[in-house]
Amino acid sequence: MLEFIISKYNFWFYVILMMIGLYAMLAKRNLVKKLIGMNIFQTAIILFYVSIGVKAGKVHVPIIIGGHGTHHAIKAADYLNPLPHVLMLTAIVVSIATTGVALAVLILIYRRYKTLNEDEILAIRQAGRETGA
C-alpha cells in the first residue's frame, strides 16, 4: 500500500491539491477565496501535466519518426517528453488570463455591492428585488 502511494506520489499530490481547490470554490463564501480555489484547481492540473513528462533515467529523443505511425500505441514510458511542458505554457497563460478577468470582475462587484461576501451580496440583491417589485 505504502509502495503504491509512494511510487505514484505525483498523482496523489495533484489530486489532493485539486480537491483543496474544489473545496474552496464550493464552500468558501468570500469571492476572492473562491478565486484562489480556482487557481489552485488549475495549478493542480498543470502539476499533473508537468509531472507526466519527466522520467528518471530516460533520455530518448522525444520525436521519433516511425515510432508513432505504427498500428499500436507508442510506449510513452520510454522517453522524456517535453510536449506536456509546452502545452502547460499555454495553459498557464490561459489561467493567468482567467485570473485577470476574474479580478477585474471582482472589482466591479465590490464597487456595486461594497462587499465580496456571497451571502451579503445575495441578501442585497434579494432586498433590491423586493423593493423593485
Binding site: 474544489l22 480556482m38 488549475q42 495553459a91 482567467t98 478577468v101 471582482l106 462587484i109 456595486r112 455591492y113
Partner: peptide
C-alpha cells in the same frame, strides 16, 4: 452582470479544467 459573470467564470473554469484533465 458582474456577479452573474463571476459565477460563470467559476463554473466555466471547472468545466474547461475537467476537459483538460
Amino acid at each position: 452582470a458582474p456577479f452573474a459573470t463571476f459565477r460563470y467564470i467559476i463554473m466555466g473554469t471547472i468545466g474547461a479544467s475537467c476537459y483538460l484533465l
